[in-house]
């Protein structure tokens, strides 16, 4: 069908849509990795501080 057309059809909007979608998903994925990493680090700190406290002979009440 398009072969019959002399000029290229205007598909600029679809191209923008495609690259916008790509950017959104990539940013979302990188952000999810960052958030997971941050949360895990926070968990790690909490757990380590609990362990350090338990290691002490006198426990805080």
């Amino acid at each position: 069908m398009f072969l019959l057309l002399e000029e290229a059809p205007d598909t600029f909007g679809y191209m923008i849509l495609g690259y916008a979608f790509f950017s959104v998903v990539m940013i979302a994925y990188v952000a999810s990795m960052y958030v997971r990493n941050r949360n895990l680090k926070r968990d790690l700190e909490t757990l380590e501080s609990i362990q350090a406290e338990e290691a002490k002979p006198t426990k805080r009440q």
Partner: peptide, 12 residues
């Protein structure tokens, strides 16, 4: 020529 700008999506 046939597809127009949207063909640029093809690379990614």
């Amino acid at each position: 020529k046939v597809m127009g700008e949207v063909q640029r999506v093809f690379y990614f």
